[in-house]
Design a protein around this nucleic acid. Structure first.
Length: 618
DNA sequence: GCCGTTTTCGGCCCGACTGTTTTCAGTCG
């Protein structure tokens, strides 16, 4: 899909126009980019089905942008964009990645100092050139360097949410190949880590219909690097493996083939990440999957256990001397080592191996009974067109029904956030009416589904809420989150959040630590203190599923669970398609060892409403 | 450049915060 490529260009056009102080156009380009980014349908398909007219039907896309999209689809270029770029030849995307750097600053830095790249910027900041410019000082220089350092830490890593769609696309293309039998993505993608270095696929070659005259020898594969198909095996199997590799390295979106061999090929995708494909033997599939799924830390300990039992574990199998005793499935490998199966999301050597051992021996404190990807019954944090979002409440609700939910909580921004068209008390009242009307239409159908009215209110600097209690009271529930003054001192910030927790109508704290992946650290807070307050007042902490947030993180989730604080997994969707981000939040919860009972939106509508109706403990 | 219950032109994009300033420019949500 070229959606994200085009969105990226539109964003950049917006930045270039901002540099030139053009008014309003940047806003239009950004809006179009935003829609395109989260558009579920393939833009190319839309164009093919109805040409420029169909493109114009996309919200935020008019005649001019539609023609530019057409130009890109036809020629791979947009002349207007190329022209803007040649006028100001700077790496906009790279530079805006630094927190605090925007188009205007980039323009100044380029014209005054000729800064074009991140490298130029770092050099200029380090040599004290930036502080000499007017409107810049020592502090701005320091902030720039900090921003660059933060960016560098996550360099070469991609957000899971950004690359998972491409991974799925590659997987479905590979699945069309009749030569492939099993296919699984391994590595950090399988572990659903929040950021990903590269993508590893494991496949097995489909057996020929006629039985091969000899099975691949286990002896030949023991501990040695072996070709995917041993010399004894059917040579047609090798031909099929070659065919898989030919197909793989010619997939669309590949910009470079790093290497291509009979068992491993490696390519670089247009988005910048690498994808490896490995062909393994069916009898080693489990051990290969275990090996390539990692994490490295997890595997080191697992292999040590094997050694302790006089065994050897590698990607080809679990061996006792020359004899292979397990390897076909992962479960088999773990069991042969005296462990129960460990879900990929847990494999970080954070105590999961010890827990699997205890469980296998029937002792207490085994592995958690992880929340499953199907346990969620509703989403309690999403936005509608009432606060400037893309979709109406009805459209959001319909998607929620499609997802099989029992309820959807609309929680638009409130008035402090003017740019997000935050709702005031009066508007919340009007919205209530719309929701009540809409719910009547759902009640006639046989299944249970209900839209709940929430609101994502703002925690002001003194810890008060920007909506009056009388209005909060009329909502089904209220969320509070921090959207300003992120740099408060630890004590003040902690007190600020705790004061919001104490508000009798606040039930949920959204994105509690405020971090933005690849961009911004958590706020300075005493998390344990906040946990204690949340437990005391029965307030729920959110696991925000948005790919760049994923806040709480895994460690905080585990901590919350240990303390007995309940959590909710929400998407924070600003468009209906983003309701599908839920899987990232669930993965995060799993990586934090959360069980179904720890997460409140696994419970039925009835129980949830009852919970919200309860008065808070204090 | 987009959009339309203010409908084919004129409105859209506010307000807090930061770092630089001493009255403002740029960024962010």
């Amino acid at each position: 899909m070229k959606n994200d490529e085009i969105a990226k260009i539109l964003y950049e056009i917006a930045s270039y126009l901002e540099m030139q102080e053009v008014s309003f156009k940047p806003y239009a380009y950004k809006r179009a980019a935003l829609t395109l980014d989260a558009l579920e349908m393939d833009i190319e398909q839309i164009y093919k089905s109805g040409g420029v007219k169909a493109l114009e039907k996309i919200p935020g896309v008019g005649k001019s942008i539609a023609l530019k999209i057409e130009e890109y689809l036809k020629t791979g270029k947009i002349r207007y964009y190329e022209k803007l770029k040649s006028k100001l030849p700077v790496h906009v995307q790279e530079l805006t990645g630094v927190e605090g750097i925007g188009p205007k600053t980039i323009e100044t830095l380029y014209t005054k100092l000729g800064i074009r790249t991140l490298e130029d910027l770092e050099k200029a900041a380090k040599t004290g050139k930036i502080r000499r410019l007017s409107h810049f000082g020592e502090k701005s220089e320091k902030n720039i360097l900090q921003g660059i350092a933060f960016l560098k830490k996550s360099k070469g890593r991609f957000l899971l949410g950004d690359i998972l769609p491409s991974v799925k696309e590659i997987e479905s293309r590979l699945k069309t190949l009749k030569e492939i039998d099993k296919i699984t993505v391994s590595g950090s993608v399988r572990r659903m880590k929040e950021t990903i270095g590269d993508v590893d696929f494991l496949v097995t070659v489909r057996e020929s219909k006629k039985p091969a005259f000899a099975p691949a020898s286990t002896k030949a594969t023991a501990g040695k690097k072996a070709s995917a198909v041993s010399s004894e095996a059917d040579s047609s199997q090798q031909r099929r493996a070659d065919k898989i590799m030919d197909f793989f390295v010619s997939l669309p979106g590949i910009v470079k083939v790093w290497g291509k061999g009979p068992t491993k090929s490696s390519v670089k995708m247009r988005q910048g990440f690498d994808v490896d494909l490995r062909v393994v033997l069916i009898e080693s599939y489990g051990s290969a999957l275990q090996y390539f799924t990692g994490s490295k830390e997890h595997n080191i300990v697992v292999r040590r256990i094997a050694i302790g039992k006089g065994l050897k574990l590698n990607e080809y199998g679990l061996f006792k001397g020359e004899k292979k005793i397990a390897g076909k499935t992962e479960k088999e490998v773990y069991q042969a080592l005296g462990l129960t199966y460990i879900e990929p999301e847990l494999r970080e050597n954070q105590g999961e191996i010890e827990a699997a051992l205890r469980q296998a021996q029937g002792r207490p404190n085994g592995l958690p009974n992880l929340i499953s990807y199907k346990d969620i019954k509703g989403d309690l944090h999403c936005h509608s067109d009432w606060d400037g979002g893309v979709n109406s409440i009805e459209e959001m609700a319909k998607t929620a029904v499609e997802l099989g939910y029992e309820y959807l909580g609309i929680s638009d921004h409130t008035k402090f956030l003017r740019i997000e068209h935050g709702l005031n008390e009066r508007q919340l009242g009007l919205q209530r009416k719309e929701i009540d009307e809409l719910n009547k239409t759902f009640h006639v159908s046989r299944f249970t589904f209900q839209v709940l009215q929430g609101a994502e209110t703002n925690i002001l600097n003194d810890g008060s809420i920007d909506i009056k209690d009388e209005a909060l009271k009329k909502l089904d529930y209220a969320i509070a989150g921090i959207h300003s003054s992120f740099k408060m001192k630890k004590r003040e910030m902690t007190e600020r959040i705790i004061k919001a927790i104490k508000n009798p109508y606040i039930k949920i704290i959204s994105h509690p630590t405020g971090r933005i992946l690849k961009r911004r650290n958590e706020y300075q807070i005493d998390f344990d203190k906040i946990l204690r307050a949340a437990r005391e007042y029965g307030v729920i902490l959110e696991i925000n599923s948005f790919p760049e947030r994923l806040d709480l993180n895994d460690k905080n989730i585990r901590r919350a669970k240990e303390v007995g604080v309940k959590m909710v997994i929400n998407t924070d969707a600003h468009q209906k398609n983003q309701l599908r981000y839920m899987k990232f939040g669930i993965a995060q919860a799993r990586r934090g060892w959360a069980e179904k009972k720890d997460i409140i939106n696994t419970c039925s509508l009835k129980r949830l409403v009852k919970f919200f109706e309860q008065d808070k403990i204090k």
